[in-house]
Design a protein around this nucleic acid. Structure first.
Lengths: 348, 348
DNA sequence: TTTAGCACTCACCCGAAGAGAGTGCTAATA
DNA sequence: TATTAGCACTCTCTTCGGGTGAGTGCTAAA
């Protein structure tokens, strides 16, 4: 696409986006003209607006209304027209304060993070605890429950804990379980789940006669524990009620319902967040870019967070397309940094 | 309170409540008169209605509108005017089907139950996993995480698993942990958490010189594990979006916001559910009876569920006051029975 | 005691009128 | 040639008044 949008047009586009973000109503030429720093007459602005509309950056809800930004308009705005501010001290303090209490359980960190994000942004806060597959495995324990059922507990290097109940054909004594546990921990500790899966398949592919009875049981168990059924991703969504405060959704209950349904399903959200995981750093999804019908009026700003050097998950803020991108980006960026630090065990 | 409400009045009250539940609009005398099985003139009905209003069972949104039931009206209706139907085969089948897949992890059971309840009732489904304190403890495991941190895993007799990260002053080797684990399991297995707490205090009250080093460490650890910080209750709320479908809340976004805020806070819901736990069986909370301002337009129908003979938690359906009580009660009752069976390990 | 009749009360649903915001076009201006 | 002033026009939103209808309470008759 040719980049035939001159500086003045950019300036006007920026003004329109910002005005719309603040006031949630279509922006007219007069409004722009009267804004601070604009020395252009309404008539000229109208011409520019008309051009911007033709290029697809703006649209009109109806004739004789002002313009509102399209997805493309927002996209251009976040890509080219804003600079990310340094977070206000009060806000970064607020974020730091949230982690002072030395949370250790990763679920708690995630939950309180989603709440924190929603609180400072007045939007919904989202945190994705990612597929266990990419995480380095540290320790597994098996605990015998009632007959033929064993509770498997995985602990990852970064402190994520997962439980899973396994059903066995044969009954194992706790001592057997303990032996198997010791074996698996020495065999698999430090590998990622993906590597473990490959390793299991490799071991099992070897000549079966070499197996002693216990190894067979161990492999049987670990197959059930590591291979079957994906350990699902965990997603935390906090502050969904903030969506209820957005004027555009109060005016349109239908839209609100759609969004809440998306929250409840989660699968769709996870799909988007998975994409955000692919690349380290900030990721912004605007409206229909998500290709998810239900949330085409919303945007999502995310940032990956890490444990040491490896990307662990992604956190972000979800709100109407009309969000204060600069500030939201700054918040998400800063928070991701802090969370990464916490998870890596650094003192805050 | 004197029970001066004759049979005909009861009949009319019942008709009004049912009509209102179905149509969500104030019920007038003509409407009642035209209903099947009513052979009374509108004028007479008006007189009766007037009496019922005076007694506090009905109210008028405004003069010249029909009547709607008050909380007291609903209360009388559920207490005296309905009989609980036998659940339709299709519905009980649907419930049974939900549990066919042999869920074993209690969290999964709870989650899928809350979803199930919301699905068949078209209201919100709620399940409370109660305080760990009342549950019989089966097994504890300690897993060493990074320096000075230990992951404690509790397994209850009924299969509830809880994780908790503990911070220690001194570093323990895994072997020490294993010894301690074995000791604690033999010492505490089969007791409730409450009993365990008492036991710990008792042991620690004994002359300290009797302690060998390991016992001291064991007590230190178990104190952190069992005494400090309550292991919180888990509540599952499914199908909150069904609330968005209720005509009365679509018409009043303000009310909707309030309810969703209550969902998000959870503490208030837990408070009500705790009360429902106190007594085995069905529990119905109508409107302001909950004494929680935010949900004064809603009702809650709950039933306790059990593991063996001891009450484990409570499940129920949350919706507008105007709910189909007979059917909802039947659903909740039936589901509680099934869940209890599942948890007790009986074949379904 | 029940019922028919009737005047009265409100909420709700139009439709018309008016205001206001904003546009696009044209012609004048720098 | 680019910008601006002027102007007619469009369209939404609000307001207001009248009409409608559901429902009531009261009174008097059955």
């Amino acid at each position: 696409m040719v980049h035939d949008i001159d500086e003045r047009s950019q300036f006007i586009l920026k003004a329109i986006v910002q005005s719309y973000i603040m006031n949630v109503e279509p922006v007219g030429s007069r409004t722009v003209s009267k804004m601070y720093g604009v020395e252009i007459s309404p008539a000229t602005i109208r011409n520019v607006m008309s051009d911007l509309e033709e290029m697809g950056y703006l649209e009109q809800p109806h004739t004789s209304a002002g313009r509102i930004p399209t997805d493309k308009g927002y996209r251009f705005y976040v890509d080219s027209l804003i600079d990310i501010p340094i977070l206000a001290k009060a806000e970064s303090d607020r974020i730091n304060k949230n982690y002072e209490s030395k949370l250790t359980e990763i679920e708690k960190v995630m939950e309180s993070t989603s709440r924190l994000l929603s609180y400072i942004s007045r939007q919904a806060g989202i945190v994705l605890l990612p597929r266990f597959t990419t995480i380095t495995f540290r320790h597994i324990s098996f605990i015998k429950m009632r007959d033929n059922q064993v509770l498997a507990i995985f602990v990852s290097e970064s402190g994520v804990v997962q439980n899973k109940v396994i059903r066995l054909e044969e009954d194992l004594r706790q001592e057997e379980l303990d032996t198997i546990t010791a074996y698996l921990n020495s065999e698999f500790g430090g590998l990622t789940l993906k590597m473990i899966r490959e390793r299991i398949i490799e071991i099992m592919a070897n000549d079966k006669r070499e197996y002693d009875n216990l190894l067979r049981k161990a492999m049987d168990l670990s197959q059930k524990a590591f291979l079957e059924g994906s350990i699902e991703e965990d997603i935390y969504v906090g502050g969904t009620t903030n969506i209820l405060e957005q004027p555009e959704f109060i005016a349109d209950v239908e839209k609100m319902k759609t969004i809440f349904k998306a929250f409840e399903e989660k699968a769709k959200l996870i799909k988007i967040l998975d994409k955000c995981l692919e690349e380290e750093g900030i990721h912004i999804v605007i409206g229909a870019e998500s290709e998810i019908q239900e949330i085409r009026d919303c945007s999502l700003v995310t940032h990956t967070y890490k444990h040491g050097d490896s990307v662990l998950g992604v956190l972000g803020i979800f709100g109407p397309k009309r969000m204060e991108y600069p500030r939201i980006i700054a918040i998400v960026d800063y928070t991701a940094g802090i969370v990464s630090k916490i998870l890596s065990g650094e003192p805050s």
